[in-house]
Design a protein around this nucleic acid. Structure first.
Lengths: 143, 143
DNA sequence: TCTGGTTGTAACCATAATTGTTACAACCGT
DNA sequence: ACGGTTGTAACAATTATGGTTACAACCAGA
């Protein structure tokens, strides 16, 4: 378990809600989504809470409660989802600061940070190319 | 500590060896490198062992032992280093297989895998653009 | 007003990744 | 033979991840 599966699960949840709503239902419960994802409802609620804060999903409480999309699937990219749930960078610099007396130790941090910035930008650019509508289309096409 | 720092440390180690050799020394010891990186020599030896298997570094044992580059800094890209030390993917699919009876649960895996392939390709393309010679140049320029 | 189902969130656990550390056999130039 | 270094195993400390239980807050409808 080196990488995490949050982006996969979050995309799954939102796509599921979108399709469910498209079939005429008002809201989807975390239990229904968890059944499709095959995990615990709390895992779903935790992720949807972050997506809600980012303005991608909305919840209704009380009886007949559940989740709905705050935006159409076509207007949500995987980059939106990624930024809503992943705070940290992909690559880390040194855990302990390297020797500042050494030329390499002194300069390697900024040098690598510049590269990592470009890499993350490329990653975001790529994630921004795909919407959840694209994902749903892929899913329905394969079915 | 969400992300790991191996690429940073490996690039640091190789660049350090390169500069050290350029200054007229035959080999660099893991202890010297560890001092610049500010970590334990075993951490360096573990990484260099993988880089050695990938054909980027070489070691000499016995007395007067140490590490040297197997290729010039200008011919080693960060992608070479990345592939030598990082086996796993950046994004993971579901930990437990989702409900195959559900349309979304059935199709989301392949759909996301296709996106992740493109993302990893973009990441590799970006890492391939920078050589360790570029990194060293950056370091010396800033000094 | 009460009931029942759901959200929102805290708390805890198991597992695994990451990094640091100690230890030691294997190696080899001198 | 000596002494310094590699190569690697073993273990510990810290953290991330995901699963689970628990429960207060919430609210539509009876």
């Amino acid at each position: 378990m080196s990488a995490n599966s949050r982006l996969t699960i979050a995309a799954h949840a939102l796509t599921w809600i979108g399709l469910y709503q498209r079939r005429g239902h008002e809201v989807a419960t975390s239990e229904q989504i968890a059944t499709s994802v095959n995990t615990n409802p709390v895992v779903i609620r935790r992720l949807l809470a972050k997506l809600s804060k980012a303005g991608l999903a909305d919840s209704r409480r009380g009886a007949g409660a559940g989740w709905m999309l705050a935006r159409d699937l076509a207007t949500i990219t995987l980059l939106d989802v990624y930024q809503a749930i992943e705070p940290g960078p992909v690559f880390a610099l040194h855990r302990a600061t390297p020797d500042p007396e050494c030329v390499v130790g002194h300069g390697i941090g900024p040098a690598m940070a510049a590269v990592y910035d470009d890499v993350e930008a490329a990653l975001r650019r790529e994630l921004g190319k795909t919407t959840l509508e694209d994902v749903l289309r892929d899913i329905l096409k394969a079915a």
